[in-house]
C-alpha cells in the first residue's frame, strides 16, 4: 500500500527532483510527507495541464519531475500531455488517482472516471500499470526507473 512517507522516500531514492501536483482526496493525504521534503520539491499548480508544461520545462532544464494528479485532471490535461510527450518527446512520468476504481469493478458506481481512464492513456500512447492495495512504494520506484531507463513516458494508476 502506498503512503506519503514511503512514496517521498522512494522518489528521493530515484533522484526525482520535483513532484508537480493537483491532489485528489487519496493523494492529498500524502501532502505532509511531500511538502516536508526538500527533495523532491513539491510544486503546486492550478490546473493539470500546467503540470505537464511545467514538467516539460524542468526536463528541458535537466531536472527529473513527476506529476501527481487525479484522472479527472488527466482528462483536462490532454493537449498539454500530447505536446510534452509527443511533440517534445519528453519522458514524462505521472501518477494518476483513479476515482471509484474499486466501486466500478464491483458494479457499485456510475462514476464514468474508471470507464475512460485506461482508454485515454492508451489513446495517448502512455504505457501504464494499475496499482492496487498490494503495491508498494518500491513498485512505484521500479516503474519509474524502468520508464527512465527506456527514456519513455509512463503512468502509474492508483486504484481508489
Amino acid at each position: 500500500m502506498l503512503d506519503g512517507p514511503s512514496v517521498a522516500a522512494a522518489l528521493e531514492d530515484c533522484g526525482v527532483s520535483h513532484v508537480i501536483w493537483v491532489p485528489d482526496s487519496v493523494l492529498g493525504s500524502w501532502e505532509p510527507a511531500l511538502s516536508g521534503s526538500q527533495r523532491p520539491t513539491l510544486l503546486r499548480v492550478c490546473r493539470e495541464g500546467e503540470a505537464f508544461a511545467l514538467a516539460a520545462g524542468l526536463v528541458l532544464g535537466g531536472k527529473k519531475p513527476v506529476i501527481f494528479i487525479q484522472c479527472t485532471g488527466l482528462f483536462e490535461a490532454g493537449d498539454a500531455l500530447r505536446n510534452a510527450v509527443h511533440d517534445l518527446k519528453l519522458p514524462i512520468f505521472m501518477l494518476v488517482g483513479v476515482r471509484s476504481y474499486y466501486a466500478h469493478r464491483q458494479g457499485k458506481s456510475n462514476d464514468s472516471c474508471p470507464v475512460f481512464t485506461e482508454p485515454i492513456l492508451r489513446a495517448w500512447q502512455i504505457p501504464y500499470v494499475v496499482f492496487e492495495e498490494r503495491h508498494t512504494a518500491a513498485d512505484l520506484a521500479a516503474a519509474y526507473r524502468q520508464a527512465q531507463a527506456e527514456r519513455r513516458p509512463g503512468a502509474v494508476l492508483v486504484a481508489e
Partner: peptide
C-alpha cells in the same frame, strides 16, 4: 508546436531548473 496557453509554465520550469 505548443500546448495552448502553456508557455509561461514551460518557461517557469526552465527558470526553476
Amino acid at each position: 508546436p505548443s500546448a495552448m496557453g502553456h508557455a509561461p509554465d514551460l518557461g517557469l520550469g526552465i527558470a526553476l531548473a
